[in-house]
Design a protein around this nucleic acid. Structure first.
Length: 252
DNA sequence: AGTAACCCACTGGTGCTTGT
DNA sequence: ACAAGCACCAGTGGGTTACT
C-alpha cells in the first residue's frame, strides 16, 4: 500500500479512510491529499449547477468548502463510501450559497423532514443495534440521500447547545456585510472563505454566539437564554468579535 | 535569606437599569 | 431589539511586612 508514487491514481476506500482519520487528527498533509484526490467530486456536483448565471469558479470554491467540511465531519465508523457523504455535503454547501437571501431560513418541510429522520434514526439504531447509515435512512423513508444530509445540516437537535457546535454552517452573507463594506464580488468571495476560517478559530462560546445570532437568526435575548448568560453579555461578545474580525480582515 | 501573609490597585467579566 | 452607563465581584500582580 505504498502511496508516495501514485498521486494521480484514485485512492482506495481504505486509503481514503486512513487519510480522513489522519486529517481529523490534524494532519494537514493528509487533508491536502484528500482534497486533491476528491476534486472530481466537486466537478461532478457542479454539473448539476451549470447555466444558473454563476461563475463556475465561484461555485467550485464553495464546493471546496463543502469538501473540506465533509472531510472534517465524515464519521469513519459509518461503513459508507466517503463520496456518499461528501457529494450531498458539497451540493448542500452550493445550494446554501445559491439561496442568497442571506440567512438560512429552514423551511417548515425541511424541519419536518429532519424530525422524521431523527425518529427513523433512533428506531433503526434499536433495530440494527448500531447507527444506521444515510443510505439505510434514505431507503427507509424514501427520501434521497442529499436531502437527508441537507435536513440534518440545517436542523440541529437542541442537544447541541449543551455540546459543542462543531459546524460553521450557514450562509455568511449577513455577517460579511456587517464587517465589510466591500461590494466587489471577487473580493467578497475571498472574504467569505476567510470568514469561515476565522469562525473556526473563535473561542467556543464566541462562536456559538455568532452562529446563533447570524446563522440561526436569534435575537440577543434568545441567545442569552440559550447560553445561560445575559443579553448584555451577548451584545458585548458580538461587538467584540465583530471588531476583531474587522481587524483580521484588514490584515488579510 | 527565603518564604509566607497581607494589602492594594488594576483588570476583566458580569448583571441591572436605562436610553435610543 | 440593542447598547451604554454604572456598580459589583473575582482573579492577578506587585510591593511590603512578618515569620522561620
Amino acid at each position: 500500500m505504498e502511496k508516495g508514487n501514485r498521486d494521480n491514481i484514485l485512492l482506495t476506500h481504505e486509503e481514503t479512510i486512513k487519510l480522513i482519520i489522519k486529517s481529523q487528527n490534524g494532519d494537514k498533509g493528509a487533508k491536502d491529499k484528500l482534497v486533491k484526490h476528491n476534486l472530481g467530486l466537486i466537478k461532478s456536483v457542479l454539473r448539476g449547477f451549470t447555466n444558473r448565471g454563476y461563475e463556475m469558479d465561484d461555485l467550485f470554491q464553495i464546493g471546496s468548502i463543502g469538501l473540506l467540511k465533509a472531510i472534517d465531519k465524515f464519521d469513519t465508523s459509518y461503513d459508507v463510501k466517503f463520496s456518499t457523504y461528501a457529494v450531498p455535503m458539497i451540493a448542500g454547501e452550493i445550494k446554501r450559497f445559491l439561496r442568497d437571501d442571506g440567512l438560512i431560513k429552514v423551511s417548515r418541510s425541511l424541519k419536518q423532514t429532519a424530525n422524521r429522520i431523527k425518529y427513523t434514526q433512533d428506531r433503526l439504531s434499536k433495530v440494527l443495534g448500531r447507527e444506521p447509515t444515510i443510505q439505510e435512512i434514505s431507503d427507509e423513508l424514501d427520501i434521497d440521500k442529499e436531502e437527508i444530509v441537507m435536513a440534518l445540516e440545517s436542523s440541529y437537535h437542541p442537544d447541541y447547545l449543551y455540546d459543542v457546535i462543531h459546524q460553521n454552517e450557514g450562509n455568511p452573507l449577513y455577517l460579511i456585510d456587517k464587517i465589510s463594506a466591500e461590494e466587489d464580488s471577487e473580493k467578497d468571495m475571498i472574504e467569505r472563505i476567510i470568514l469561515k476560517e476565522m469562525l473556526s478559530q473563535l473561542k467556543e462560546r464566541d462562536r456559538q454566539v455568532i452562529i446563533l445570532r447570524y446563522f440561526k437568526d436569534k435575537t440577543q435575548v434568545q441567545v442569552a437564554e440559550l447560553l445561560g448568560i445575559s443579553q448584555v453579555q451577548v451584545s458585548r461578545i458580538e461587538k467584540k468579535i465583530i471588531e476583531e474580525m474587522k481587524k483580521m480582515l484588514v490584515k488579510a
